[in-house]
Nucleic acid binder design. Structure first.
Length: 428
RNA sequence: GGAAGAGUGGCAGAGCGGUUUAAUGCAUCAGUCUUGAAAACUGACGAGGGUUCGCGCCCUCCGUGAGUUCGAAUCUCACCUCUUCCGCCA
């Protein structure tokens, strides 16, 4: 949620900045809502004050045994209009909230202009795409030899689900373990285990709701009308740790990580990446979250990018770091770096991590604050990023490390996690 | 799933229809004293919002949501969470 005060004071600037990221804000509507809110709120509060004072008097006079009829009629005469102003205030504040919750974050000034991914900037590349002396296969064909079974996934659950068996299943598990171990032991994150089902408040806090309910899976509790959402990312649970919390300065930064499954409906991506593991309804991801002092968040963003890069370096996978332009960023982000890994079969880089500084956008929704040295409560900054997506990493390893006979070479960093296995063989 | 009890400011804990501005203690912060610290003393000390150039004034919040009342932390109803016991269960 953007700062309503900035919207009040500099509506034109806000409008211009949001336009750059492709959002048209209705300033006229906002001004109307604000104007009404103001007058209704003042009226309501004045009547409340009157009621409070008269009620107090009634108590005093009554205890003295005096007649209170006049006071009673005085307060009763305003009761109806008080009720109506109070109701109107609730409604108008609701409308304002809905209006504000719909608005995406304002991009940081260091974010390049541009309407879509074509304007993203490649910051750096690492490693070079391996040259094959045979025609490399894609991970679906190689995976077929190793226990990667999309047909079985479809039978059990439908499209965009997969079953892994044998060495591939183990490799997948090894990747996740390796990643979270590295985040904890080398990068100083606190390991967490969180629920995978969350309530509405949590999703509003991180910005998935109310706007993007289409992208989520909803679960019903038995036959009751209670329901919970499956998390689309570990960001939701980890970031919501600080919802309604006031941290002290010495608790910052909070660095959290978790290996969680993620569930996405992928509504609106029909026909995109239909083959293979790139885009699944269910996948695993190691999430990094940092909760920082507002002065430190951009430093933390750079750190988090390096933390994700470190994983790819250890896995010896070629990748590049991309700075997203204004038009390509997610709803809550003020600045985002994507890390893309080389996928030989597609001869292109594909997103394997996305790391964002949300500044105080989520913190305002979450009421996540800290007590500054001046004793005032101020909003924190929240950052999140993948470190990394496990399924896509598996794809990258399968394809980049394939041998001509269909075997897959295990990256050195994972050999211990594979019980010493250096190659997984198609015949085993 | 059943039974009983409980949810009040950072923590502990009083208040159970009006003169409360939520007592008191601990913790925290500032000051006095001290070479310094501790102790003692003095004072400050929840959150959000409205309005004002500012001092300030005002509103809302005692698990959540409805309700009763001129007036609710206090009464009623529903829900949530926690504790204890019983049942079931990985």
């Amino acid at each position: 949620m953007i700062n309503i005060n900035i919207l009040r004071e500099q509506p034109e600037q806000v409008e211009a900045k949001l336009k750059e990221r492709g959002y048209k804000i209705n300033i006229e509507k906002f001004n109307m809502l604000e104007q009404e809110r103001k007058s209704v709120q003042i009226n309501a509060q004045e009547l409340q004050e009157l009621r409070n004072q008269v009620s107090k008097k009634i108590g005093i006079e009554k205890s003295k045994g005096n007649n209170i009829d006049d006071l009673m009629s005085q307060v009763n005469s305003t009761a109806n209009s008080l009720k109506s102003f109070e109701d109107r205030l609730v409604n108008i504040q609701n409308d304002l909230q809905v209006f504000l919750l719909d608005i995406p974050n304002i991009p940081n000034s260091s974010v390049p202009d541009g309407a879509n991914e074509h304007s993203n900037q490649v910051i750096r590349e690492s490693g070079s795409a391996r040259s094959f002396n045979f025609a490399p296969k894609d991970h679906v064909d190689i995976g077929l030899l190793h226990g990667l079974d999309f047909d079985l996934g479809a039978k059990l659950s439908g499209a965009r689900f997969v079953v892994m068996r044998k060495d591939i299943a183990r490799l997948h598990r090894a990747i996740g373990q390796f990643m979270i171990d590295t985040q904890v032991s080398e990068h100083g994150y606190e390991e967490c285990y969180t629920p995978f089902l969350v309530n509405e408040d949590s999703l509003i806090g991180t910005g998935q709701l109310p706007k993007f309910s289409d992208d989520l899976f909803i679960t019903k509790k038995g036959n009751s009308d209670e329901f919970l959402y499956l998390i689309p990312t570990g960001e939701v649970t980890l970031t919501n740790f600080v919802r309604d919390v006031i941290l002290s300065n010495d608790q910052l930064p909070l660095k959290l990580t978790a290996l969680t499954p993620c569930f996405r409906s992928e509504a609106g991506s029909y026909g995109k990446d239909t083959k293979g593991m790139i885009r699944q309804h269910q996948f695993e991801k190691v999430e990094m979250v940092q909760i920082t002092h507002p002065d430190k968040s951009y430093e933390a963003l750079e750190d988090m990018v390096s933390h994700a890069e470190n994983i790819l370096k250890k896995l010896e996978l070629p990748y590049r770091v991309v700075l997203l332009c204004k038009g390509d960023m997610g709803f809550g982000a003020a600045k985002t770096f994507d890390i893309e890994v080389w996928i030989p079969s597609q001869e292109c880089y594909r997103e394997i991590s996305s790391i964002s500084n949300c500044e105080d956008f989520q913190a305002r929704r979450l009421k996540a604050r800290f007590k500054d040295i001046d004793g005032k409560n101020k909003l924190l900054h929240t950052l999140n990023g993948s470190g990394l997506a496990v399924g896509r990493t598996l794809v990258a390893i399968i394809e980049n490390n394939q041998l001509e006979n269909g075997d897959i070479q295990i990256p050195t960093a994972l050999i211990n996690y594979m019980g010493g296995l250096k190659v997984i063989s198609a015949n085993s």
